[in-house]
Simulated assay, not measured.
Amino acid sequence: MSGMYVLIKLAGEREIHIVESLFWRQLPTIPFVLIWLLLKGQWPRLRTKRLGAHARRAMYGMVGMSLNFAAVTLLPLAEATALNFTTVFWAVILSAVILKENVGYWRWGAVLIGFVGVLAIAKPGAGGISLSGASVALAGAFMIALISIQIRNLSISEEPFLIVFYFSVFTAPVFALVLPFVATPHDVGDWCILFGLALLGLFGQLVLTASLRFAPVSTVIIMDYSGLIWATLFGWIVFEQLPTPATWVGAPLIIGAALLVAWREHQKTSA
């Protein structure tokens, strides 16, 4: 996924409109799932009685993905990745407000520490990273948290591949309708970036889904934070950008607080 974000940022630098990146990110999922089901002779697995729920998830997902793509173009990779980790804190807040879950002192404390880390990275009023970029990244993280609640509800009756498939089915045509108004001619380099973006996005989605079959969620969440290592490395090699000193302070606070939330979730479910 970090590799995909590199290509999104490169696409932005080559003035490829974000809608084109979003369209090519979504499109491959549809033929991949259809061919896979055709080869297995399992077309009936596409049936769903919750088309409206899939449409709502797609609407929120379209907004969230657009915000996250925009954040990558507006911020250095490491900072965009670190701020994306605040999804965990938004999820805690939403679980208390929407699901009426009992959130204890540990998780509220973790949320507070996490947002202190956000302030450390953004350094508002002190010449930190772009505040508009930070705001977009935080909004994208909030949308991911909101979407996670929808996916949790959909997962009660729907298979993971079906949720992914209908997300693309609903969103790819919307992006396609906008393409004629924003698309520009591309050279071979542009098409290589878009093709790579589509390929890495699909592959990343598949391995992330598969990871949940072979390891508990708590383990997968911890591994997800390795994305900051890759983002820092790619940012240095490809864009000659290293995290600011403030990011070295704020990112550990965000990751540590997120791990605390994951630990408390594990304690709660295993109790």
Rank of each mutant, 00 (worst) to 15 (best):
H266L: 12
I121Q: 06
Q241C: 10
P160S: 06
G117S: 13
T219A: 13
F89R: 01
P185H: 10
F170Y: 04
L99H: 04
F170E: 05
T73N: 14
K49P: 06
L212C: 06
L154Y: 05
L119M: 12
F32H: 00
V6K: 00
M4V: 08
S130H: 06
I113S: 08
V261Q: 02
S218N: 11
I254L: 01
T81I: 00
L38D: 09
L39I: 11
A126F: 12
T209K: 10
M1Y: 13
G41M: 09
L51T: 04
L228Q: 06
E20T: 06
A262K: 02
L154N: 04
A91Q: 03
M65W: 03
A141K: 05
F234A: 03
L177C: 10
S95W: 07
I144E: 08
G104C: 03
T81N: 10
A110H: 04
G64V: 08
I144Y: 15
G201W: 00
I98H: 06
A145M: 05
S226W: 14
S2T: 14
Y5P: 05
A96Y: 10
T184M: 15
D224G: 09
M65N: 01
G61D: 10
R107V: 05
L131K: 06
L112M: 14
I163W: 08
I151H: 03
A251E: 02
I156S: 13
R213H: 15
S135R: 09
T247P: 02
P44M: 00
S270Y: 13
V188A: 15
V118Q: 01
R47E: 10
G12C: 02
E101R: 04
F23V: 08
M4P: 06
L46Q: 06
S211A: 13
A82W: 04
S218W: 08
A96K: 07
G41D: 13
G127N: 04
H266P: 02
V169L: 14
W230M: 07
F203C: 06
F239G: 00
F69E: 03
F165M: 07
F170Q: 11
E13S: 15
L99R: 06
F142G: 14
G256D: 05
S135C: 14
